[in-house]
Amino acid sequence: MKPAPFDYVRADALGEALEALHEAGDEARVISGGQSLVPMLNMRLARPSVLVDITRVSELKRIEQRKGQVFVGAAVRQVELERWAPLAGLLPMIAAMMPWVGHAQTRSRGTVCGSLAHADPSAELPLALLALGGEMHLRNRRKKRVLPASAFFMGMMATAVEPGEMIEAVAFPTHPMGTGTAFREIARRHGDFAIVACAAIARPDGTNRLAVGGVADTPQAIDLPDPSDAGFEDALNEFAWSLGARDDLHASARYRRDLVRSLGRQTVKEAIACRS
């Protein structure tokens, strides 16, 4: 289990990284924390010919709050966001999720944007991006573009990032007063990828949004009425079925649908309960 050969480029500035990515095109991968990529390198599932290390690019190491959004740069480690003091106040859902993202020993190095780039449908941060309606800021050496989660995630571990392009930052919107959020997850062991993960937002206007990870190829979301509303259960059930759950080693499709219904309901209720 050793990586196949590659050229390694340690970028000191964003421009250098973009230039290196442009040169290598489809054969390049960005590396920073490496917590998703290096296992694939070790197993030789991934064989990029060039790795562009952005860990030292200072422009990418910032967490900033501006215009109702929290920007997390591509080289920001998960642990840095987890320990960022304003997190619990501004993004309580992500604060609740962070302990579920891998383990302390992987959050210490893994980046927030790396997890999003990996686009594992069971992972927590992609779920947060979709649930919160966040945006991915991408750029190549010539232009920038901003994509919502629904356009960013193309499928299981597939994203809209194009050759020569990289993630510059993710922007999570903060909520207006009176918004409640909640997060619940079932995994086989602590720290495993979710069998089902639910993230809910209860908006001040009384509507709710539920996002579910671990079932479909990408996280999926739905707007739901109040759980006391007559249409709630039916809508949730239709949603559970729409995700196309499949059996795998760890859980049956039926169990996943059951969890979408039961955890989904609980998560929405919890979000409403903390909508103060």
């Binding site: 991968r29 990529l37 694939m40 599932l45 991934a46 064989r47 990029p48 990996h118 686009a119 499928g155 299981m156 571990m157 597939a158 994203t159």
Partner: peptide
């Protein structure tokens, strides 16, 4: 064939 970084 491949998806994401996993190509063969």
């Amino acid at each position: 064939l491949g998806v994401g970084p996993v190509k063969g």
